[in-house]
């Protein structure tokens, strides 16, 4: 059984499917995220696939600030991801609200609504930083050996 567990942990690390949610970003971060998919950075090397559906995702990449309008959507998406999952907040906005944090409708960073595992700073973060953040997030799978509920 141990082999199986080891294999599953390894699989989790080697096959993180990624859901990207633009939570009110200025699109700067999003372009950097998409840059990761291009041949230059080619994150499919790590088995990462950009899926469009929380039900298939392991990794949740959030860019931008959270406001009153989209906080529900953010929470809903996280709720519809099956465990185990990792939430990565990208960019200054995702971390704290960034330049928009004083706006009347902005709540702040992603962690105001859902628990965040990895913070990737930058405005916008470079693709290398994003990939680094994702890889750091994967360590969570290795740490929590088996958190099937």
């Amino acid at each position: 059984m141990d082999y199986l567990k080891v294999f599953i942990t390894k699989s989790r690390i080697k096959s993180p499917w990624l859901l990207h949610f633009d939570c009110g970003s200025c699109n700067g971060c999003d372009i950097e995220v998409l840059a990761c998919l291009t041949p230059v950075y080619d994150i499919e090397r790590f088995g990462i696939i950009n899926v469009g559906n929380p039900k298939h995702a392991d990794l949740f990449l959030v860019t931008g600030t959270v406001n009153h309008r989209n906080k529900k959507v953010l929470a809903n998406l996280v709720a519809q991801m099956p465990d185990p999952k990792v939430v990565v907040a990208l960019g200054s906005c995702g971390l704290t609200g960034g330049v928009f944090r004083e706006a009347y409708n902005v709540i702040g960073g992603v962690d105001k609504v859902v628990p965040v595992d990895v913070y990737v700073p930058g405005c916008p973060p470079k693709p290398e930083a994003i990939i680094d953040g994702v890889v750091t997030g994967l360590e969570k799978f290795a740490r929590k050996k088996d958190d099937r509920p």
């Binding site: 294999f7 599953i8 390894k10 699989s11 989790r12 080697k14 096959s15 499917w17 088995g47 392991d58 099956p82 465990d83 185990p84 088996d146 099937r148």
Partner: peptide, 9 residues
Amino acid sequence: FDVAKLFAK
């Protein structure tokens, strides 16, 4: 890897 991961979700 993908399938093994999915099974354990």
